[in-house]
Each structure stands twice: as structure tokens, then as C-alpha cells.
């Protein structure tokens, strides 16, 4: 048998298989690397950059970097945590995140990862962009204020639902999520509540209607335990995903 390949994630030795990314191997070994746009059910995207690690001294995203034998990966140092916190702060000021008024609060992965990195404030100057809420669909609402452009809904709708309901428009700070329907409204698309795309959003942007705030504070997904122990919001039964 060929020798087991391993790399070092901080002080832990992590085994990996050919083709594994650092993230794949870490997840299998039960090690947490903070992330938002990554979901193991989909091809790695590498856009949020929150899974940044230092691998043999180079900054890479753990979700896209192939694991290599004897690689030394820094996932926990203050310097790495600091970069992640800054990336999260950028995401917070880019959109309009009013957690006290958000149904997803307490079960939001953006929030949870921010707690994990000890983010106490968004730090930067807010853009306060003008964005809308689309409540035209009978069962699903989308609040663009909270979208972090992770493209999980885009990928799920394209690759799993085969409906291509979401895509990205614009570029730079003007990049935004758009709906593929004649009117651009969700209500005029073929989206249904059972679509995969409705169950992958890590934040409170895509939400089922007719509910919300159905878990009391203190019992929500990330109220008592950090995301490093609870895992991704999408991995939990969708009934649990709500604040």
C-alpha cells in the first residue's frame, strides 16, 4: 500500500487523498476552516476568501488549494484570523446587515463566522448601498441587502435544479445578484420552495415565507455553540435554519 499522504494543519497531522483540497481533507478530519462560499456539495468557488490559510508561507484559499504532502498550513494564527476578520468586515459594510431585524439572525453563517473570528464591529466605512427586497414569490422572499455574492444559489440552481434562476450582473462593487425572469422578479421565475437553490444561502438573503423568528433566542443554531462545532447552516435540516 502506498504511504498515506499527510499535511500539517496548525499542529495536527491531516491525512489526504489525491485530488483533495486542504478544505476537503480538513472537513473529513473534522477540522474547521472558516468559510462562506464553500459548500462541499458544490465545486469550490474561492470567492469569499474567508478560508484563507497560509500554506508553506503562501496565502491561499483552503477550498481551492490542492493538499500537498508535508505542507504546513497555518489556519489559526492571529495573523490569519485577522485577515479573515477584515474580509468579514468588508462583507458587512458592503451590504446592509441589520441583524436585529433579520429573521436569519442566530442561524446565519456570516454572523457565526464573524463571532468565530471575534469581530466586534464592521470597522470600515459603510457603503449603505440602495438594494431591494423581492417578495413577489408566494413562498420565498429575497432580500438583496443581505446577499454576500457567494453564488451558492447560482450554482445550486444551475447545477442541481437545472433552472438557472440566479446569476450575477455588473462588476466591481456594483456586482449584484439578479433573477432570471422576464420581469427580473422572483415571482415570475420557476423557483419552487423545494429547489436546492432555496436551501443553500448561508445568510438571510433567500428565505422561505410564512415563518421566521420561530426559534426563541437562546435556542437558535449558533446561539450556544460556535460554527466550528455546529457546522454550516446548509448542512442542518432546513427547519432548524431559522431564528
Amino acid at each position: 500500500m502506498p504511504e498515506q499522504q499527510t499535511f500539517k494543519l496548525d499542529s495536527k497531522t491531516i491525512p489526504f487523498r489525491d485530488g483533495d483540497t486542504i478544505m476537503d481533507a480538513a472537513l473529513r478530519a473534522g477540522e474547521y476552516i472558516p468559510h462562506l462560499c464553500h459548500n462541499p456539495e458544490f465545486t469550490p468557488h474561492g470567492s469569499c476568501r474567508v478560508c484563507v490559510v497560509s500554506a508553506n508561507g503562501r496565502h491561499v484559499s483552503a477550498c481551492t488549494q490542492q493538499a500537498m504532502n508535508d505542507m504546513e498550513v497555518d489556519n489559526r494564527s492571529d495573523a490569519i484570523m485577522d485577515k479573515r476578520r477584515n474580509l468579514l468586515q468588508m462583507l458587512f459594510v458592503e451590504g446592509n446587515h441589520v441583524c436585529p431585524g433579520c429573521e436569519k439572525s442566530g442561524a446565519c453563517q456570516l454572523q457565526a463566522v464573524a463571532y468565530y473570528t471575534n469581530m466586534l464591529s464592521p470597522h470600515y466605512t459603510h457603503f449603505f448601498p440602495k438594494r431591494s427586497v423581492d417578495a413577489s414569490h408566494a413562498d420565498i422572499a429575497i432580500d438583496f441587502n443581505r446577499c454576500i455574492l457567494c453564488e451558492l444559489c447560482v450554482r445550486a440552481s444551475r447545477d442541481v435544479d437545472r433552472k438557472n434562476i440566479f446569476s450575477i450582473s455588473g462588476r466591481g462593487i456594483k456586482a449584484r445578484l439578479v433573477i432570471n425572469s422576464d420581469t427580473g422578479k422572483l415571482g415570475d421565475s420557476d423557483l419552487t420552495a423545494t429547489d436546492k437553490a432555496v436551501h443553500v444561502c448561508p445568510v438571510g438573503a433567500i428565505l422561505p415565507k410564512h415563518r421566521g423568528y420561530d426559534k426563541p433566542i437562546g435556542e437558535r443554531l449558533y446561539d450556544r455553540q460556535p460554527v466550528s462545532q455546529v457546522g454550516d447552516v446548509a448542512a442542518h435540516d432546513e427547519d432548524d435554519n431559522h431564528g
Binding site: 470567492s47 476568501r49 468588508m90 458592503e94 470600515y124 457603503f127 466591481g172 462593487i173
Partner: peptide
């Protein structure tokens, strides 16, 4: 506009 640091950072 694909990744966070450049999309947001370049405007900041």
C-alpha cells in the same frame, strides 16, 4: 467583483 477583498477593498 468576484472576490471580497478586491471587490470591496478596491472601492474602500
Amino acid at each position: 467583483g468576484f472576490c471580497t477583498p478586491c471587490r470591496v477593498g478596491s472601492s474602500l
